[in-house]
Design a binder for these strands. Sequence first.
RNA 1: GCCCCCGUAGCUCAGCCGGAUAGAGCAAGCGACUUCUAAUCGCUAGGCCGCAGGUUCGAGUCCUGCCGGGGGCGCCA
Length: 681
Amino acid sequence: MNELAKHNEARRQEIIKLRDIIRKRRAESPVPSFADYPLTRLQERITHVLREHSGQADVTWEIDVLDRSKFGADFAVRLTGLLKEHGSKEYIESDVPRIAEALAGPELADVVAQVTHKGIYVNVRLVNHWFLAGVQAVIDLAERFGHNDTRSSRAQVVDYSSPNVAKVLHAGHFRSTMIGHVLANLYEACGAVVYRINHINDFGGFGFMLEGFRRFDPYFPPTLGNNERLLEIYAIRRTLERAVAASEGLSAADEREHQILTRYFPGASTAEELRAAYEGFVAAADERFQKLEEGDADEVALWRRMVEWSLAGFQPFYTALDIDIDFVIGESFYLEAGNSLVDEAISNGSAFELTKRRVCEEVAELDRAVAAEEITIPMRDQAVALLEKDIGAIVVPLPSGERLVVRRSDGRSIYATRDLGAIKLRREIFDPTDINYVVGQEQRVHFNRLFQAAQVLGIATATKPKFQHTYFGFYVDAATGKKLSSRESVAGVNELLAAAVTHFRARSAEGGTMTEEELDQAARQLAVGSIVFNDLKRDMKGSVSIARGDLTPIIADFEKSGGPYVVYSACRARAILRKYGKPVPHLREIGAFELSDQEALLIFRILEFPDKAAKAADEDNPSILVRHLLEIAGIYNSYYASAPVLEGNKANKSRLMITRAAQLVLTTGLKLCHVECPPKI
RNA sequence: GCCCCCGUAGCUCAGCCGGAUAGAGCAAGCGACUUCUAAUCGCUAGGCCGCAGGUUCGAGUCCUGCCGGGGGCGCCA
């Protein structure tokens, strides 16, 4: 067994052990049943009544939440199917009164106070007791309120963060890390077993690292640490590539490039000399990579050390965000599985070498299509160009007509090889129902092909695992609207966090009563919270614009993001409960009580929380959750300002209950968003 | 060239498997702190929902075309 295989076998045992721990943890923390939530039960009862009265088994209806102060009702019921089938005229004239009558009937008399109708809407006002009973249900479940079993039959691999070893973390990793982590939290809250995987790109391009580390050793500045050397090698490679591509000598290089080229390639100054240096470097790097792939002991040992340096370099970032991803698995782990998969595919014919002859045949077919006017000449030319580029590589033809290159013409693996290997091994180890890749939008084409290839190669069926590429937009420069290159965005990540902490540290509301430690803690949590909200409150497919240079406007945006607002709201509720100092009253202790329009809306929104969490998970869209929290916080803040809970030594019991429910839902929601709510702010 | 995303208030965005008078936040203006601590609350103002057709009883939402902005199209990851 070679060194790489040995290393991977040991890793596999560690991974399996951790997998079992996670499975056990899941089994030991059961989630509440979605069907038992007050809103689900109400909807179920309404469906039942509508079904009984229409005599139809399949009744589709939608609920529109209303504001009592505006409509006098809590929600509207709309039977979309019937509306479409009958048209609005008939629906309004005959269906609407019938629906209203059914909803006002004896079956729902204990929960429905009033039913009115106007146009296509049947408006329902619920009895006040239903709301307070709902609040009690929230209080009973406490921190588990919102968690549900909608995904309890699923095992989900969530692949996120995915930094490149020997490169700097950039803003894209920042987004991937937070979005992925929050999504994983959501799936877990919905009952799934979640395997969080940080897929470390630790293999591609490593020939350059292994070669460069030795080749440039005499020239590295002595102050350069190990990890910095790796980054330097990457910079050297990129600089040289650019210089060679430009076909100009040293004279055309800018100051930084000039400095690099003369330091590491002394004596090379003309375009030809640089090209020669480049070719020598590439050839030696290729050789190193091949030895690494073969498991050569020396190369594997150095490679492992390099990966460790790099991971240690990433750690401050993960520590600052307080994110610990369970499985940190390099793509090298999947190399062998990928290679044998490709070998198998070649032998059974699902993959083959794209030879010149095959290309000629395909070109002939394209020419025929042109002659038959099925395609245009530019389309043909483009297809030909794509074909010719892949000559010599091992390809998998896909149902879409595209190809996926799975092995280079020199026999070496590429990322597609290892991504396929990853699918195979992940199925073996985790047996997931879903594999979710939280990776930037620029990789859409890659994943689209990868998922197709997985089916072609028989490591996936049409339904299992369910593949999902959850993509997001990038950061753009606020001034130009253009994408921030990774070189421009690299610096900011950790500094941004530090600046945000400093900012919130100076803004404390309860500063006078807080210890230094509490202040630090609150500031850190607010910083993380504001960053998460800034990223996740809008649809993540869009880009996020970032002002450059001065951090002040960015931090100001963070404050406006709403994260601190939600945290603040939860803290206000918590302050009331703290002042009250006793457990909140139980529904049983409440006699007659008033319920304001605002309270009705607030409670309804709180009771919607499980639905929103499930919906956000189903649509892989954290912004649904984030916006709902902002909505609840908004109503609560308004309520807080106008409805005193404690007056002198008198406490309003129903308001105490509502305050507790609001505090619970906000705290739990924030936690799903990876924001811990500090006790004081 | 092909493909993808986005055009809604001055700005940032919700709303998109069609439905009530198109909603928030920020910015602007006015008002509220001896308080459950104002990181807050209340009020005011602000919209040919990019343009043109089409489908429909009904379109910001669906379809087609166009215009404008951004991105992707490596034997890199």
